[in-house]
């Protein structure tokens, strides 16, 4: 840990900073979406599970964004980065900002994200950056649960009733166009992979496809070819939804600059 942070302080690394924002923002924005369900879920048990997942994701966001602030070396902490950046500076994937829709749509988003995140973090625990490896080791246990829990719901809803099957199919139909972005490699990912900080994203694809195949079989759901990819989140070009998410999330700290809460 000390080596990672001291090297971060001595040598600001823009690729690492951007990479940490990607990790932190994915978790933060999905947590923000999931917490919209709080108090409104189909049953109390599900309400508790969803807030549990949201809570884990907020925890991940805090760690990654605080570390991003250290790496940047300009005195920004996780809160500063979460509440005082605008949409163009957010680096999350488009998938996590998609609307909750019905519970089927929410589970489709969760399943795709957590299945991918599990594979990513299995790589991150081996990061050459000790701080990232430490955060990932803690988070991976949580993510395993998120991935299994959401897969169980995909199976339950896919296999359940004709209505739930149709809703599950529709939920995935909303999300498919955002899947390719998860595996897209740009110069940041290439630099990070080269330094052994994170796995090459494209290397996760075959395991992801295999996981999908087995879950969809169990859920008796059809897997169809993906539509054309929509990209842009990693460069700050988001869907129309993110601005609204940030407007809500950032309203208080931005309305009262300098206040401590």
């Amino acid at each position: 840990m000390t080596t990672a942070s001291s090297s971060a302080a001595s040598r600001p690394d823009p690729a690492l900073f951007d990479y940490l924002l990607r990790l932190g923002d994915d978790s933060l924005i999905l947590a923000q979406r999931l917490s919209e369900w709080c108090g409104h879920a189909p049953m109390i048990e599900v309400d508790l599970s969803m807030s549990n997942v949201a809570l884990d994701l907020v925890g991940q966001a805090m760690l990654f964004l605080d570390y991003a602030g250290q790496v940047e070396g300009k005195g920004r902490d996780g809160d500063k980065l979460a509440f005082h950046r605008d949409a163009l500076r957010f680096r999350n994937c488009l998938l996590v900002e998609q609307p909750n829709g019905d519970f089927g749509q929410t589970m489709a988003r969760q399943y795709l994200f957590s299945t991918w995140q599990r594979l990513l973090f299995q790589g991150l625990v081996k990061s050459t950056d000790a701080q990232i490896a430490g955060i990932a080791a803690k988070a991976l246990k949580e993510i395993e649960y998120h991935a299994d829990w959401s897969a169980e719901w995909v199976v339950r809803l896919g296999d359940g009733t004709p209505e739930s099957r149709e809703r599950m199919i529709n939920g995935f139909a909303w999300m498919w166009r955002f899947v390719d972005e998860l595996f897209q490699v740009d110069e940041i990912d290439a630099a990070v992979a080269k330094a052994g900080i994170g796995p090459a994203r494209d290397s996760l694809r075959s395991d992801f496809d295999a996981a999908l195949k087995s879950t969809f079989e169990a859920a008796t759901l059809p897997l169809t070819p993906l539509p054309a990819a929509v990209l842009g989140g990693r460069k700050g070009h988001h869907s129309e939804h993110l601005g609204h998410i940030l407007a809500e999330m950032q309203h208080l700290p931005r309305s009262y600059p300098g206040a401590v809460w």
Binding site: M43, V46, L157, T161
Partner: peptide, 9 residues
Amino acid sequence: WVRDAAAAH
């Protein structure tokens, strides 16, 4: 519909 699906499954 979610509770029904869970029960049916």
